[in-house]
């Protein structure tokens, strides 16, 4: 059969057109990504390794408690001991930049979709497309538009990782108890206020799950991005594949696993009331409300008592 729709060629033509006409835009995007990545990379690689590990362990203590702190320390020391620390730092920087941008895009989109059925109907197939398109396919246009380096890696990662963030945000907000939202309306709250004070806090577990998914998908994509010269652990995995270097491949792979577990546990702990941070915060807020009530009580006594305070 001769009949064939040249979809691939059309897309290619389209991309070429974009390449020529939107060059400035993509050049800007490239330097932005590169700049953010370099900054993040510098942050992690310039201080001594042990200092970074100590800081991360303390962060782990605050986020989840001492067991996680020990796990983080052991895991990171393992990465150092297999000589993958520099690669791991590169990868971490790439994940953080990509995930940050993906989150910054997907949460507002999710909120918009939750409040507008048309937007939701349009975004749904787009997200299906982004999520199911084989991850490698993103690399080609990214490469064409942004040239070799970390920028196409970050670009492809953002596209690939965004979908669950949008979906879980929308789902979370739509899933908030209708009566509670109605209560907000019934007391005359504006839609913005309902979003801020009712919908977002109550959708938080779902949104957090979305953020967690974004970070995990970013990490898995970052390895693939090694193919376009994004470097880091992905770069070593790609190199070991081409030279059949098992030892290097497994060491880099295990380092990815350690990073993945640490990132997953970190993001999974947000808003769960775990670790020292939650403990300190609870103590602080309990004390604050206690003070507040005591103050009100004394003021009440003052107000109703014979001596009126002219100032208040």
């Amino acid at each position: 059969m001769d009949f064939r729709i040249p979809v691939g060629n059309w897309i290619n033509d389209g991309l070429e057109w974009i390449e020529i006409n939107l060059e400035v835009f993509f050049e800007g995007m490239r330097s932005t990504f590169k700049g953010m990545y370099d900054g993040m990379d510098w942050l992690f690689s310039s201080p001594p390794t042990l200092a970074i590990i100590a800081v991360l362990a303390i962060a782990a203590l605050f986020a989840r408690g001492w067991k996680f702190a020990i796990g983080v320390t052991v895991g990171l020391l393992f990465i150092v001991s297999v000589g993958q620390w520099d690669n791991a730092v590169d990868t971490l920087a790439l994940v953080i930049v990509a995930a940050f941008i993906a989150i910054a895009l997907s949460i507002p989109l999710g909120i918009w979709a939750a409040r507008n059925d048309t937007v939701s109907a349009i975004l749904k197939p787009v997200m299906d497309f982004l999520q199911t398109m084989p991850a490698f396919v993103y690399l080609m246009p990214a490469l064409a538009l942004l040239r070799v380096g970390v920028a196409p890696g970050i670009f492809a990662t953002i596209l690939f990782a965004m979908a669950p963030g949008v979906r879980l945000t929308e789902l979370g907000i739509r899933g908030v108890d209708k009566e509670v939202v109605e209560a907000g309306q019934a007391f005359g709250a504006s839609p913005r206020r309902i979003l801020r004070q009712i919908q977002l806090p109550l959708a938080m577990p779902s949104i957090m799950a979305g953020i967690n998914q974004i970070i995990m998908l970013s990490l898995s994509m970052v390895v693939i991005a090694g193919l376009v010269g994004a470097g880091g652990l992905g770069g070593d995995v790609v190199r070991s594949l081409s030279s059949l270097d098992y030892p290097l491949g497994f060491e880099a792979g295990l380092a990815v696993v350690v990073l993945a577990i640490i990132l997953d546990r970190f993001t999974g702990s947000f808003g769960q009331g775990l670790g020292m941070y939650a403990w300190l915060r609870n103590r602080h807020s309990a004390k604050k409300t206690e003070d507040e009530l005591a103050r009100l009580e004394s003021q009440q006594i003052q107000d109703t008592g014979p001596r009126r305070n002219p100032g208040s």
Binding site: D177, E179, V180, A183, A186, F187
Partner: peptide, 11 residues
């Protein structure tokens, strides 16, 4: 103002 069947408090 309004009181709701399932309370509708902010949890």
């Amino acid at each position: 103002s309004m009181v709701f069947q399932h309370f509708a408090l902010l949890p």
